Amino acid sequence: MTSRDALPKPVLIVLHQETSTPGRVGRLLRERGHPLDIRRPRFDDPLPETLEHHAGAVIFGGPMSANDEDDFVKREIAWCAVPLREAKPFLGLCLGAQMLARHLGARVYPHEGGRAEIGYYPLQPTAEGTRLSARLGVDWPGHVYHWHREGFDCPRGAATLATGDDFPVQAVRAGPAAYAFQFHPEVTYAMTCRWTTRAHERLSLPGAQPRKAHLEGRLMHDPPVQLWLDAFLDHWLAGGMVDAAPNGSAMIDRAAAVSR
């Protein structure tokens, strides 16, 4: 093995706006030695045909919907077949989680009462999620940061790891190494300030919390989020092969069929 081979592979980072950043996830990956290969398919950046040369991939959030008809949205949804087929670490956050769900045939939908989750909301681990916590050695955070008006169902054959109130499915594992989180563990203080300023009109939606609650909530709830994310990323980068979701191999086979 050459010294070049021993270097950590880059992680593919998929963003959706010109000013978007990978936040805390990006920082923690760089601290582990992984370069960030940042792509923005919305602005015509291509996605790789294989993740052979990447350690994993993260699709982040954005103001668009996984139900939109834009070409780049459809391309990203279809591209989810690549990490599933290759059993490479994949993480979908908010929009990215909904894209994975859509790829696997699950519903992405608005709340029937028109409610949104924008701010900090409770998170409850399932039995599967509790088993993951035992592997990580860190409990799930009790509250996590949200910014969304749509949720998703758990795809057939996947495992629900955590639930919420208005949007029941909050975290999912599909196959051995693909995870989908409806919440935003990557958010930094600067991102919270930016989102609540530039998109302040969203704070008036039913169920959304006022800006003051976002900032106060961060002081109360963010330290456990950071501890949990730090432990989770080590598990994720290792491939998450322990306690794979039921029917994980069938799900990978289905992804391979979709990509052909």
Rank of each mutant, 00 (worst) to 15 (best):
R4D: 15
D5W: 07
A6C: 10
P8H: 05
V11A: 09
L15P: 08
Q17R: 15
Q17F: 04
Q17P: 00
E18I: 15
P22V: 11
R24E: 14
V25E: 13
G26N: 04
L28H: 05
G33T: 11
G33M: 02
P35V: 02
P35M: 06
D37E: 10
D37H: 10
R42I: 06
P46R: 02
P46W: 06
L47G: 10
L47W: 04
T50P: 06
H53M: 11
H54W: 13
A57T: 11
A57F: 05
F60S: 11
G62K: 07
D68P: 07
E76P: 09
C80F: 12
L84E: 08
R85D: 10
E86H: 02
L93T: 10
L93Q: 08
C94S: 11
L95G: 08
L100K: 02
L104V: 01
G105T: 03
A106S: 04
V108M: 04
G114R: 00
G114M: 00
A116Q: 07
E117N: 09
E117F: 03
I118G: 07
I118P: 01
I118W: 00
Y121M: 03
P122I: 08
P122V: 12
Q124H: 13
R131M: 13
R131Y: 00
R131F: 00
L132Y: 03
L132T: 02
S133R: 00
A134H: 12
D139L: 07
W140S: 09
Y145F: 15
Y145P: 09
Y145H: 14
H146E: 12
W147T: 07
R149E: 10
R149P: 00
E150D: 13
E150G: 00
G151C: 10
G151K: 01
C154I: 05
R156T: 15
A158R: 06
A159H: 00
T160Y: 00
L161R: 03
G164D: 06
D165I: 10
F167P: 11
R173S: 10
R173W: 06
A174I: 08
G175M: 06
A177T: 10
F183M: 07
H184T: 03
H184R: 02
Y189I: 08
M191Q: 15
C193K: 13
R194C: 06
W195H: 09
W195R: 09
W195M: 13
T196P: 10
R198I: 07
H200L: 06
E201V: 13
R202C: 09
R202I: 11
S204E: 12
L205R: 15
P206K: 08
P206W: 01
G207S: 06
A208R: 05
H214N: 03
G217A: 03
G217V: 04
L219D: 14
P223G: 07
V225L: 05
V225E: 13
Q226A: 15
Q226I: 14
Q226C: 11
W228K: 05
L229G: 09
F232Q: 02
F232K: 04
L233N: 12
D234Q: 07
H235E: 12
G239E: 06
G240W: 02
V242D: 15
D243M: 02
A244R: 14
P246C: 03
G248C: 11
V258S: 12
S259W: 11
